[in-house]
Design a binder for these strands. Sequence first.
DNA 1: CATAATTGTTAGACAAGGCTAACAATTCTT
DNA 2: AAGAATTGTTAGCCTTGTCTAACAATTATG
Lengths: 168, 168
Amino acid sequence: MVKQEMQRQHTPSMEDYLEAIAMLRDANKAVRVSQISRRLKVRMPSVTSALEKLSEKGLVVHERYRYVELTPEGESVAEGVVHRHEALSCFFTEALDIDRETAEEDACKIEHVISPLSLERMIKFIEFIQACPLEEPNFPKRYKYYLEHGQLPEECLAKGLEKEERRK
Amino acid sequence: MVKQEMQRQHTPSMEDYLEAIAMLRDANKAVRVSQISRRLKVRMPSVTSALEKLSEKGLVVHERYRYVELTPEGESVAEGVVHRHEALSCFFTEALDIDRETAEEDACKIEHVISPLSLERMIKFIEFIQACPLEEPNFPKRYKYYLEHGQLPEECLAKGLEKEERRK
DNA sequence: CATAATTGTTAGACAAGGCTAACAATTCTT
DNA sequence: AAGAATTGTTAGCCTTGTCTAACAATTATG
């Protein structure tokens, strides 16, 4: 097998459709064209034509005028997108202390382009700051202080000074 | 003034062209169509037609068969893109310990879609971990340990146990 | 300086992914 | 169950951004 540029299998647009279908199905029961249209803020004809393409690729099942379903393969693609979305949005809210709305917006864009490695590291990062118990006030707390006050909290400054002292 | 969806002014493609022009100019002296073509891995006619569009928008100056220059406005747009790129790539390498190549690739994609807030927070984050001197082994060091070994370093585990003990 | 090599442009094709207008099927309401 | 309301589809158009092929200008070289 020749080593070739492993390029993303599906376009951002197609990923958005798959993700929307998966999430609507999880929330409700049967997925309709109109719902996808509303959720993605595109007109219904755009949905119809996207579904046709996804059908051809074997990712969804859609008979005219009927509900939409994911095939097992479509399911697994959607799962991947949703997973990336959730990891990203969690990283933005938990690690960077971004508001939920902005975090969601950014996740929606970035989920289509981020590398597996970077995603994995963000997940590891969250695990790490959640697991690592060293000191209180701990890392996220000190970080928030820095965000709010534009400078390090007392205990950091103090330690910083100590260090400088020792160096003399 | 009516509140309206503040949408990104320029497409990812246009931003890529502006960024490439700025960086080529910084590296060399005069920017040619062929250089842009090579750097962005698109064919020359694509460059020509992109330059025409950017000209119409007043972002570049380009007379047929001659060098390409940025207008002051093009300059400032390019500066923004380059700034986002550098902040992102720095965040990936410094904060998440990603290799330079992957960091660059991700930065190239994400620079077109990230919100100003998330970008600002990433910058703040880097400043913070670089400035905060609390303990050694410090945060980035402990994080790397976690990456390599899949579990927290000794001193974290110890602290974690202490905590649990106290709770009994 | 004449011609070869390189660089750049034009013209035209094409794919993706949106849209509107018009029509068709389905579902709701009485 | 018949008409009204809703939902979905078809047809066709538009923009963006790429490409190839063919031609034109510029630059380099013997």
